[in-house]
Amino acid sequence: MSKKYYRDLKEYLISCGINIVESFPEEENYKEPLSFDTIINQLEAIAEFHKKTMGISGLNVGLLENNTGKKIERFKVYIKKLKRDIKRYENEKAKNRFEELILQKAPEYLDRAEKCIRIIYDNGYYKLIERSMKRNEVCLGNTYIDNIRKNEMVNIRDIRKCCYNMVEFDTIHFLGKLKKRHNKLDFKAAISEFCRLEELPLSSEIFIRAVLSYPVEFMKYCERYRYGKKEWNEDEYAKKLLGVIEKDDDSLL
């Protein structure tokens, strides 16, 4: 564990052998859709970042935000609020196409969401958190190809999303982006490879698959409608939600 005090995060990362860059050159192998080799190379870059950076000491309190556990708590809040919405739309009758869609489709998505949460907790979630906190694991936050690459060194553009968190979430971010782009990847094999690189147990594989299977896009659109976060009318909200439903990927569980 590093005992030195660092003035800022950039100084700490440079001391770990991380190269901070302003941009990346155009490279053929980083053009979309990504090849399997590029995806594996990206997982290697993420794993190397973790090995180099974990263990920063408590002397550096305030250097990094602690996001451990926040995403799963947010997932649970989504479920509670959607249940309230369904009950309200049933009692007051659906007022528009969006609310009708929620009454038709939400039970299926709630079932999937609750299954994901159940698997996460039944699979030793608290032990994963304990490991992460004991090792002072650092996540980059944005692990897509536009922010981290590896050649002779690990190179990073933007470090503003760096935080304390379980290392599993960095690959969740990367693979989640690929899943959203409908990349024809064997996601289970990629998750297994990441866990091999990180020397993580089977419980980590199951955790990553459960988080990636959670219907987060559906939940986000329900929240946007609930709080009027977008300047859309009811028909636009319904159209957007239908797009999410049509593009919905299969669960990895």
Rank of each mutant, 00 (worst) to 15 (best):
M1N: 06
K4W: 03
Y5N: 14
R7T: 11
I14A: 12
S15H: 11
C16H: 12
I18L: 13
N19F: 15
E22L: 15
E22S: 14
S23T: 15
F24R: 10
E27I: 15
E28R: 14
Y30E: 10
E32N: 14
F36S: 06
T38D: 10
N41S: 13
Q42W: 05
I46Y: 05
A47P: 05
A47C: 14
K52N: 04
G58A: 12
N60Y: 09
V61F: 13
V61A: 14
L63A: 05
L63E: 03
L63W: 07
L64A: 12
L64N: 12
F75T: 09
F75R: 07
I79S: 09
K80D: 10
K80G: 09
L82S: 10
K83P: 01
K83T: 08
D85P: 05
K87P: 02
R88T: 14
E90C: 15
A94K: 14
N96A: 15
N96G: 13
E99F: 08
E100C: 12
L101A: 02
I102H: 07
L103N: 06
Q104F: 15
Y109H: 05
L110S: 10
L110K: 13
L110M: 15
A113E: 09
A113R: 08
C116R: 02
I117A: 04
R118P: 07
R118H: 14
Y121E: 14
D122F: 06
N123V: 10
N123W: 07
G124L: 03
Y126W: 11
L128D: 01
L128M: 09
L128R: 01
I129Q: 02
S132F: 00
K134Q: 03
R135I: 00
N136Q: 04
E137K: 00
L140V: 02
L140M: 02
N142H: 04
N142Y: 01
N142L: 03
Y144C: 05
D146M: 07
N147S: 03
I148T: 01
K150T: 02
N151W: 07
E152N: 09
M153A: 13
V154D: 03
V154S: 02
I156F: 03
I156G: 00
D158T: 08
M166E: 04
V167G: 00
D170P: 00
H173T: 07
F174V: 11
G176P: 03
K179V: 01
K179G: 02
K180H: 12
N183M: 02
N183S: 06
D186T: 07
A189G: 03
C195D: 01
C195L: 04
C195Y: 00
E198C: 11
E199S: 13
E205D: 15
F207P: 01
I208G: 00
R209H: 06
R209M: 11
A210P: 00
V211M: 07
S213Q: 09
P215Q: 08
V216A: 08
V216L: 12
E217C: 09
Y221Q: 03
Y221T: 06
C222F: 07
E223V: 04
R224L: 03
Y225A: 04
Y225H: 05
G228V: 01
G228E: 01
W232R: 03
E234G: 01
A238S: 05
K239M: 07
K240G: 08
L242A: 05
L242F: 10
G243R: 08
G243F: 07
K247M: 10
K247E: 10
